Amino acid sequence: MTTNNLTKINQLLQSIPSGIVLQSSWLIRQGYSLNLQKYYRSSGWLQSLGHGAMVRSNENPGYDGAVYALQNQSNLSIHPGARTALSLLGRAHYLELSASQTWLFGGVEEKLPTWFRQHTWDTEILYKSTAFLPVSVGLVEFRFPSFTLQVSSPARAIMECLYVAPGEMDLMECYEIMENLNDLRPSLVQKLLEKCTSIKVKRLFLYMADKLNHPWLKFLDLSKVDLGKGKRCLVKGGVYISQYQITVPIALATRE
């Protein structure tokens, strides 16, 4: 290895956080050619994670280190959302949120790269590519030990939960999460509701907040929120809530 190549790899390893994935395409843009990357792998500085991705030798990044690469090297909006974000932010409380599953959300045209999909992580990755909320609204920074990620704020996260319910998440679990969200910022909730394109999500969100009598609800201007027209039957054999024109599970409707 030449002195120049040794200097370059040292500069790289000193400049990046520990526990992250290094994408080959990003390394090329930083001046590390494919041949140089191959040289670093054969010399034991880097090791392959999959086609187009590497890690420091002797490191085994988690999903968060992979998402760091997507956010900071590919400029994607893919982020931890739904109950994963709520758990990270300490808003899960007593709920038993399974650590064996991780919810990620991204823009409608954003896909997880092959190396991400084919790698075996220590958690099951559940990915949703959707445009029901703008990618720029309702995200917050969360600090992991050596880097920060953009993750969903509590208000956005509960809407993401409702987006995948009732098919992939139980509505009663969503309600139990909403019980703990009595301190949401009305201005952010207002913006999310105005930008949200899912009628189901907006109706469920407002129904649950109303049922729980959350104090921030009275500060919203619902005249600016499009709640659509017509009935929405979310479950069979449920209870029809005329105010919000939705049919919800009996257990939810009768919950005190």
Rank of each mutant, 00 (worst) to 15 (best):
R41Y: 04
S42C: 03
S43K: 05
S43L: 02
G44M: 06
G44Q: 04
W45V: 09
Q47V: 14
H51F: 12
H51Y: 11
V55E: 01
V55R: 08
S57P: 00
E59L: 01
P61N: 06
G62S: 12
Y68W: 15
L70C: 12
Q71E: 08
Q73D: 04
S74V: 09
N75A: 15
N75S: 14
S77D: 10
I78P: 11
H79A: 13
P80G: 11
G81C: 06
A82L: 11
A82M: 13
T84R: 02
A85F: 05
L86R: 05
L86D: 02
L89F: 08
G90Y: 07
R91L: 11
R91N: 15
R91E: 14
A92T: 13
L97C: 03
L97K: 05
A99P: 00
S100D: 10
Q101L: 04
Q101W: 02
T102K: 01
W103H: 03
L104C: 08
G106V: 03
G106W: 01
E110Y: 06
T114K: 09
W115C: 08
F116A: 06
Q118K: 15
H119I: 11
T120C: 08
W121V: 08
D122G: 11
T123L: 06
I125S: 07
L126Q: 09
L126V: 12
Y127S: 09
K128P: 00
T130D: 12
A131Q: 12
P134V: 05
P134Q: 03
V137Q: 03
V137N: 03
V140F: 02
E141D: 15
F144M: 07
P145R: 09
P145I: 08
T148K: 03
L149A: 01
S152N: 01
P154C: 15
R156T: 00
C161H: 10
L162S: 07
Y163S: 05
G167I: 03
E168Q: 15
D170A: 14
D170K: 11
L171I: 12
L171M: 15
M172G: 01
E173R: 11
Y175N: 00
E176D: 06
E176F: 12
I177P: 09
M178D: 13
M178P: 05
E179G: 07
N180M: 12
L181W: 10
L181Y: 10
D183G: 02
